[in-house]
Design a protein around this nucleic acid. Structure first.
Length: 830
DNA sequence: CTGGGGACGATC
DNA sequence: ATCGTCCCCAGC
């Protein structure tokens, strides 16, 4: 029996299966998906079995046996392995990287070396060195690492002993975490004889009597720790009873439950409004049919999408299938979790990055061991190891956080569609502002003349309770300036805030820029403070009084005089959240402000803490970056102010307008969701920009129409697909050289591919290579950055072309080599 | 003639 | 990625 193993060595050259012999004793245990330790190039590494075969591809003499099996249940299933292949192809990464992304990091084992005294070595206490005696004391075998730590000078001798055969070396894979085990006390099995024994306990051991009496009355096993606290005694007392054979103490597996001690109030399905019911019926039909189908649920904020999700999941579970709910990391608040736990109780597993490694592992095991049927989580929860998926819901599907920034650079939405196909599951993409990719996919419905393809559009244009969308006022900041107001708050926004304070209502202020100021400039000579490691201006942080780089974290003291001309006319320009906070305090003495940005929410749970405080009306204003725009729902918020809508509009990103529109629409939906009517004020220097005017009228369709026009004109997605290749190196000439080489190779292959297709340009099939050009931030962390862009459409294997070109350029890949990263733009492929 | 150091290639 | 091998040149 032969196992094909993908070894955990993430490089281009080892990105293929290696064959291993399955030892007889493991034959029944090893299957595709098993995690194993295998000897590889003179050491032991972790690997995944991806297939079982009868015959090896290589000469039998080269085969080595699998060294160890790491889990009793394989952490991957065949469908996840297949999905891994797809990811590694589509996103251009080694298969092991794709597979590793699917399991909790607790299962990322590292090889550990052990040394043992060889069997035939007799003890020779007189002449033995200390370290050898130490090994004997430890039972003949120790971790190499602990030997190194204790006897740093013995390295030479130990190495020699291994070479001579006096010591043997053994490697094993060790997981970062294991199942949590808790000492647990079991009540006596035979209560009658225990009663008898009770009387036999002498009076001086009164504590033992008390413990035993307690345990006789106890139905269930109890944690030792809890027992000791309840009866305020010590473990020796309990141990004594154990030794008498009256009690049993055993280690019991226990989940680390991040929501332990929280009771979730059970909720029942709410009656659906007509709009909700129609949407639900369509999803339920698809679930009944059991065929993969993608839905785009376009529901305005407050239209009751979550209740539709909950009932669709319930229907899915009733059909004996499982469901995954993806939510942006930032929206995965306890309130959000509560909605799902409240409806489905213990059958919900929660997966997100704020959990500790152990908690995450235990939630994952709940799914693996079929104790959970619903997974709620961020991006990576798309890999939840369910066997019969029926439904995948992606809430706020337009969110860019569904794209992973590190390798594997997958987009959870695209992976979801693929995974649903494997399982015959339904996908529901929910958003008030669908991404253009999803919208275009939905525009290809049978009705629009593309039968058999496309996502079904499910509109939910009504808000629950019929609340109107809040009125949105656009304030032209150029007018304000002309009117003599140079402050960061326009008069309408100032008046609005003042009114809210007087009425005891709350406001939310959005400014998509943290820190105090955007840049520091000398008015005399024009000097600006730049990061020494990146080509980017430093941001001043008021509290710590330092200039900080938001890309590499570099910090330096802020100058009081210009470092270049020594003038004192050095000033802070641009506005960050810290400065707004300061200004609010000046304008409204006594105002209570909660500031929420990366700087104030690094601590675990701080994000929720601030929101809870705000919900309890312990602050008047919630001020923050885009994290205040997402999913918050506070009844006393009646004013939402956007301090500078232009911040995201001018980013060097063809999605800048789309992101701005989404952000403004999202944040506008935060006001007046309850009894009190709301109001939104947007400050901007571009009041006529369509992203802003369409957001003002809550007019998604108008925005999409306009934006699609621009995208078509510029040949950007969804009218084509993109691959961005970024090259970086410490030396500028090296990057330029590699960039030129790469572009030449790409152009050559693109031409060749074009030859075989009809109508290269303007038709439905083309491939175009742009660059190399310097990236928008030409240097980060002391590395110069250049990029090439591949634009393509139709049936061309652009990723394949890129993969080959990258492999050719990255050939001499020693330490001095140019780093190349490949980014495939998201695309809903149906 | 030996021994360090960097390029090259294999790893089942 | 990491390790062993080969080959070259410097030093003895």
């Amino acid at each position: 029996m032969i196992a094909r193993v993908i070894v955990d060595v993430p490089s281009r050259q080892t990105d293929r299966p290696f064959d291993y012999e399955v030892p007889g004793e493991l034959a029944g245990w090893i299957e595709p998906g098993s995690r194993v330790g295998v000897p590889f190039g003179g050491r032991v590494v972790q690997g995944f079995v991806i297939a079982i075969a009868d015959n090896a591809d290589v000469d039998r003499s080269k085969l080595k046996p699998i060294a160890e099996l790491l889990d009793h249940l394989p952490p991957l299933s065949p469908d996840l392995i297949e999905l891994g292949h797809w990811i590694s192809e589509k996103y251009c990464c080694p298969l092991t990287v794709a597979l590793q992304a699917m399991i909790p990091s607790a299962l990322k084992g590292k090889a550990e070396s052990f040394v043992a005294i060889a069997q035939d070595q007799a003890s020779d206490a007189l002449f033995e060195p200390d370290w050898m005696m130490f090994i004997r004391q430890q039972g003949g075998e120790v971790k190499l690492a602990s030997l190194q730590a204790k006897y740093p000078d013995a390295a030479r001798d130990v190495k020699a002993a291994i070479t001579l055969g006096d010591l043997t070396e053994r490697a094993a894979i060790r997981d970062r975490l294991s199942v949590r085990k808790v000492l647990t006390v079991f009540p006596p099995a035979d209560r009658e004889s225990a009663e008898l024994a009770l009387t036999a306990i002498p009076a001086r051991a009164a504590k033992q009597r008390e413990v035993l009496r307690f345990m006789i009355g106890q139905e269930d096993p109890i944690q030792l720790q809890v027992l000791l606290e309840t009866l305020s005694t010590t473990s020796s007392t309990v141990r004594a009873l154990e030794e008498k054979g009256l009690l049993v103490i055993r280690e019991v597996e226990l989940d680390r439950d991040p929501y332990a001690g929280r009771a979730f109030r059970r909720t029942e399905p709410l009656p659906l409004m007509e709009g909700q019911q129609q949407v639900y019926d369509q999803i339920a039909d698809a679930l009944d049919a059991g065929e993969s189908q993608v839905f785009l649920l376009h529901g305005v904020t407050g239209s009751g999408k979550t209740e539709v999700y909950l009932q669709a999941i319930e229907h899915c579970l009733n059909l004996g299938r499982q469901a995954i709910v993806l939510v942006p990391e930032i929206s995965l608040t306890p309130q959000m979790v509560e909605r799902f736990k409240g409806r489905f109780g213990h059958e919900v597993a929660v997966l997100h990055s704020r959990l500790s490694g152990g908690e995450r592992y235990d939630e994952w095991r709940k799914i693996r061991e079929k104790r959970a049927k619903v997974a709620v989580g961020a991006r990576s929860a798309i890999f939840a190891p369910f066997e019969r998926l029926g439904l995948i819901i992606i809430d706020e599907e337009h969110e860019s956080s569904y794209k992973q920034e590190e390798s594997p650079k997958y987009h959870a939405r695209d992976v979801a569609v693929r995974r649903a196909k494997q399982h015959g599951a339904a996908v529901v993409l929910g958003s008030a502002t669908p991404s253009l990719e999803s919208y275009t996919a939905a525009a290809m419905t049978p009705a629009s003349g593309n039968p058999g393809r496309g996502a079904a559009l499910l509109p939910m244009p009504e808000r629950v309770g019929g609340k109107p969308m809040p009125p949105v006022t656009i304030v032209d900041m150029r007018e304000e300036l002309r009117g003599g107001n140079r402050a960061m708050f326009s008069r309408p926004l100032y008046e609005g805030l003042k009114k809210r304070l007087e009425r005891g209502e709350q406001s939310v202020l959005l400014l998509n820029r943290r820190g105090y100021s955007t840049f520091v400039m000398c008015r005399a000579c024009g000097y600006t403070a730049q990061c020494p490691h990146c080509d980017i201006a430093l941001t001043y942080h008021q509290k710590s009084r330092v200039l900080r780089c938001h890309y590499c974290g570099h910090a330096e003291g802020s100058p009081s005089a210009c470092p270049s001309c020594e003038s004192e006319h050095i000033r802070f320009f641009g506005t960050g959240t810290q400065r707004v906070e300061e200004e609010l305090a000046k304008l409204f003495p006594g105002i209570r402000v909660i500031r929420m940005d990366v700087d104030t929410t690094t601590e675990k749970g701080s994000h929720e803490k601030w929101l809870t405080m705000f919900g309890e009306r312990k602050a008047d204003v919630l001020l923050g970056t885009q994290m205040v725009a997402k999913g918050l729902d506070f009844p006393y918020v009646t004013l939402v102010g956007v301090i500078a809508a232009d911040t995201s509009l001018h980013l060097p990103d063809f999605r800048a307008a789309e992101k701005t529109f989404q952000l403004l629409t999202q944040v506008a939906g935060r006001a007046g969701r309850h009894q009190l009517p709301g109001e939104v004020i947007i400050q901007t220097y571009n009041p006529e920009h369509y992203a802003i005017t369409t957001a003002q009228h809550h007019d998604y369709d108008a925005f999409v129409k306009e934006e699609l026009g621009h995208r078509r004109q510029m040949a950007y997605p969804p009218y084509c697909r993109l691959i961005l290749i970024t090259l970086s190196h410490e030396q500028l000439p090296q990057v330029i050289n590699a960039g030129d080489k790469l572009a030449a190779l790409l152009r050559h292959s693109a031409d060749e591919a074009g030859m075989h297709g009809a109508g290269l340009h303007g038709g439905n099939r083309f491939i175009e290579v742009l660059g190399p050009v310097a990236s928008s931030i030409p240097r980060i962390k002391d590395r110069y950055r250049f990029q090439c862009m591949v634009k393509y459409r139709g049936n061309v294997d652009a990723v394949g072309i890129v993969r080959e070109a990258v492999a050719a350029v990255a050939r001499p890949q020693d330490k001095a080599g140019v780093q190349i990263s490949v980014d495939v733009d998201p695309q809903v492929i149906l």
